[in-house]
């Protein structure tokens, strides 16, 4: 399956089914991450329920230092 993640077209393995799987695929630890899936911002408790499909657009964002 191919996903557009943070502007990058990437192939993900076949064991990636949900948004939570996408996060686990990219990050070793459990990061504080906010997800926008096909333009819809997700609540964190929906990450394990939200199914991803070929061609989906996913934005993974976080809090960084700022004033």
């Amino acid at each position: 399956m191919k996903l557009l993640v943070n502007g990058n077209h990437l192939q993900v393995p076949s064991n990636v089914f949900t948004i939570a799987d996408v996060i686990t695929h990219f990050f070793k630890h459990d990061p504080i991450v906010i997800v926008e899936h096909n333009g819809i911002i997700l609540e964190k408790n929906n990450h394990p329920k939200q199914i991803v499909a070929d061609g989906d657009k996913i934005e993974l964002v976080e809090f960084v230092g700022g004033g």
Partner: peptide, 29 residues
């Protein structure tokens, strides 16, 4: 504490974040 919102670097899988270094109960973000 103020913060900004930015895209994560998906090619750096173990990036640290300051939020993980502090006890969030003590602060309003």
């Amino acid at each position: 504490l103020t913060f900004s919102v930015r895209r994560m670097d998906i090619f750096e899988s173990s990036q640290p974040n300051f939020l993980e270094k502090i006890d969030l109960k003590n602060y309003d973000l």
